[in-house]
Simulated assay, not measured.
Amino acid sequence: MQPPPGYSIPDDMHFAFVVTSAGFVPIAHDPVLFVHTSSRGQTLLLYVDDMIITCDDPEYIDFVKARLRDQFLMTDLGPLHYFLGLEVSSTSDGFYISQEKYIQDLLTRAALGDERTVETPMELNARLRATDGDPLPDLTLYHHLVGSRVYLVVTRSDISYPVYILS
């Protein structure tokens, strides 16, 4: 679907315009998640740089992808395995989410091997001061590593406390 004559849509709004024109509605609390309800059931579409489309009707997913291909250059990567640092696996029991690859990539970027990891990353009630230890030569790397750990809390709630203290 195209905008009315004489009306142009900013690039960042084009995707939302196309999917809402197709009957999808953005979720009020998360504008990157769209829902379409029909006699075929509910279809969820998540768009953050890449896209996930899911519903119980594979034919409808094919229909949605065909409509989106009319407007956008798309590559179908098949069933979901990896998205935004989350590994997704499907079994008969349901879906499982892991960030193991994300963690390994983070350890590599930080030049840390498995010999420097510990099961309990920090004792409770630890008090850290800015004057403790030696200054780091690269604060940007520290900020990057702490920020990356904030994202790990998605699947590793057990590291919430040390991430809070370090940030």
Rank of each mutant, 00 (worst) to 15 (best):
T91S: 15
Y151A: 10
P10K: 07
M74A: 04
F83V: 13
D11I: 09
A22K: 15
A110M: 05
Y60N: 10
R129M: 15
M122Q: 07
L128P: 05
H29P: 05
E59W: 13
V35E: 14
L152E: 09
D12Q: 10
L145A: 10
L141Y: 02
L112M: 02
V18H: 02
Q71K: 14
Y161Q: 05
V25R: 13
P79C: 01
V32G: 15
I53G: 03
G6C: 02
G113T: 13
D70Y: 13
H81N: 09
P10R: 09
G41D: 02
S160K: 02
Q71V: 14
L68A: 09
Q104K: 14
I165K: 13
S160A: 15
T108V: 12
Q104P: 00
L112R: 04
H144M: 11
D134Q: 12
A110G: 07
T37V: 10
Y164G: 13
L106G: 08
I52V: 08
R69G: 09
G85L: 07
G147N: 00
Y7H: 10
P5F: 08
P5V: 10
C55P: 05
P137R: 09
D158R: 00
E123C: 12
L77E: 09
R116S: 15
I103Q: 10
Q99P: 01
R109D: 13
L68H: 01
G113H: 12
L46C: 07
L33D: 03
R69N: 13
H81V: 14
T108M: 10
V154Y: 12
P4H: 08
L84D: 03
C55I: 00
I52T: 02
L77M: 04
D11R: 12
S21K: 14
V18F: 04
D30M: 00
D49G: 06
V150E: 02
A130P: 07
G113I: 08
V19L: 09
V118S: 06
A22L: 15
L33C: 12
Y164I: 08
Q99N: 09
Y151V: 01
D76S: 08
A130I: 12
M74R: 00
E59T: 13
F72Q: 07
G41L: 08
G85S: 00
P135A: 06
L152R: 04
L44W: 12
T54L: 03
F17S: 00
A16Q: 11
R116L: 07
T120A: 04
L128Q: 06
T91I: 00
P5D: 03
I53D: 01
D50W: 04
P135S: 03
L86C: 05
E115F: 06
D11N: 14
S21D: 11
M122V: 06
R127P: 01
G113M: 08
G85I: 05
M122L: 11
R69L: 11
L106Y: 07
V32D: 09
F17G: 07
H81Y: 10
G133C: 08
T20R: 03
T120L: 13
L45V: 07
T54S: 06
K101C: 07
I159M: 06
